[in-house]
Design a protein around this nucleic acid. Sequence first.
DNA 1: TCTGGGGTCCTAGGACCC
DNA 2: TCTGGGGTCCTAGGACCC
Length: 486
Amino acid sequence: MPPPLPRRPDPRVAGVLHLDLDAFFAAVEQRDKPSLRGRPVVVGGTGLRGVVATASYEARRFGIGSAMPTGQARRLCPNAAYLAGRFGAYRIVSEQVMAIARELSPAVEPMSLDEAYVDLALAHEGLTTEDAVEIAKEFRTRVRARTGLTVSVGVGRSKLTAKIASDLRKPDALVVVAPEDEADLLRPLEVSRLPGVGHVTGERLRRSGIRTIGDLAAVEEDELVRMFGKAHGTGLAAFARGFDPRPVVAEREAKSVSAEETFAVDLTDRRDLDERVRRMAERVAARLTTSGLSGRTVTIKVRRYDFSTLNRSRTLAHSTGSAGEIAEHARELLAAVDVADGVRLLGVGVSGLTEFAQIDLLADLLADSDTEDHTEGGEAGADPVDGVAAGGIHPLTSPAPYGPAAPAERDWSPGQDVTHPEHGSGWVQGSGVGRVTVRFEGPHTPPGRILTFRADDPDLAAAPPPVFEPPVLEPAVPDPAPEPSA
DNA sequence: TCTGGGGTCCTAGGACCC
DNA sequence: TCTGGGGTCCTAGGACCC
């Protein structure tokens, strides 16, 4: 069935739903790891240069929040569980939730693994605010029953209102804003609640004495355009007045594909950097291939020791998805950048995407046989910090390989799922100095016991995420009542 | 222990073309 | 030969989002 055509929401009806899973990554960890329930949990980069992706509500009470450097979080709450993230598990849960959303309406627009908009009015002719309340309640019940997670939901007449509503009373909240109540709701809220008002815009507005959405609505559009430019200025003026015509779009096409890494220590060696470029180009090419895409513009991103960041790009005459070709252009772009003082982050991307062309297959074969060296040795050098992607509409990363790994390349990440033939399923609590500590438990066991192994113990193997079994809600179909004998 | 990784959209200037 | 004007493409940078 083709996706529904996007249409501007009817401003007289609260027909747009926004769903936002509560502390999503941390909540999945607590669901799957009973010993972490009720405890502060932080998911994110666990290395020296990591940042927090999600903090559980227990951790937030210590002042820990998203995008905070993990080092700072550790100082605030040394006893929290710091986990690197299990994106395979998050993706599975996300897909379950998006499937439940599609039971409400075919028009579901995922914004990330944990957020989506749903156009309810599209699937429910003559929808009333009362109907929307009932639908949203049922949605929340289904999500909790099938995934064990709580979701906050906002409903309003536009994406703007639905999104603000879902954030208003998190966690585990349902907020429905009837169109006639919207203006009173928005007026006293801080401008930073509006999409598009981040740090810079918020600060500029504050310096102009504009604090609330009501303050902003009192500013002439022309003035905002002078301050912020055409698009941003008109957008702010519209949002401040509660006007948002953006439709819910079920299927959006990717515009670019990229991979980047922040290194544990800044790199200065050209050959080292070229090797990183090659590996990132391979990741990008693999994802392009998976999604049947190729692109004409190759971009590199370089963040230097002082955090200054530059991009260099080159547009080709033809479209490519070849790892060798992407790497070649990326290396040439990098050659023109001064790296002597140290490179903190390197990225490779491809944009100007089109559907994969058959001719690229040939180009890939030729480039690979010419320029690729497929040996995977010499990777013992400085590895990137554990990376954590907080979102992304296109879950293109290939699944992690499970099962025992060759001893040399075993490194255990905190939170990772493992199995042991004798002790069963568990997860890595920590590792170091040749040891790994595992807690053996799962979503349906009591808190489990902790055992320590040698890091190269052949009995210990990486495992897929544990399966969450929803509790049976309906009682089994009762035996038919005995016929009353006449 | 100071700052991830994956994206989107907008602006502005210059080249180039008619 | 004193020099418009619009459109498109490309590059670079930046704000913002989750």
